[in-house]
C-alpha cells in the first residue's frame, strides 16, 4: 500500500478508535489529503487485494484437500 494510503488508513483508524478526540482525527484526515478520490483509491486497492487473496486462499484450500487425501494412501 503506498504511504499516502497507509497514512490515510491510519488516520481513519485514529478517527474510529478515538471518538473522544474527534476533532484531532478529523484534522489529521484532512491534512493527509483524505479526499473522496483518495478514499475511492483505497477502496479499489482493498477490493483488488481482497479478490487476489480470496483466489489464493481457494487455491491453497484445494491443495490442502489434495494433501489430506494423499495422506490416506
Amino acid at each position: 500500500m503506498p504511504n499516502i494510503l497507509k497514512t490515510c488508513y491510519r488516520s481513519i483508524k485514529a478517527l474510529i478508535l478515538s471518538k473522544d478526540d474527534r476533532e484531532v482525527a478529523l484534522r489529521a484526515l484532512a491534512e493527509v489529503g483524505f479526499t473522496k478520490p483518495v478514499q475511492a483509491i483505497l477502496l479499489a486497492y482493498l477490493d483488488r487485494e481482497l479478490v487476489a487473496t480470496r483466489e489464493k486462499l481457494d487455491m491453497l484450500k484445494s491443495k490442502a484437500l489434495a494433501l489430506r487425501s494423499e495422506k490416506k494412501y
Partner: peptide
C-alpha cells in the same frame, strides 16, 4: 474496507472543519 466505507459521510466534514 468497512471502516473506510463508513468514513464516507465524514469526508466532507473533515474538509470543512
Amino acid at each position: 474496507k468497512k471502516e473506510i466505507s463508513e468514513t464516507a459521510p465524514l469526508v466532507p466534514e473533515a474538509l470543512s472543519q
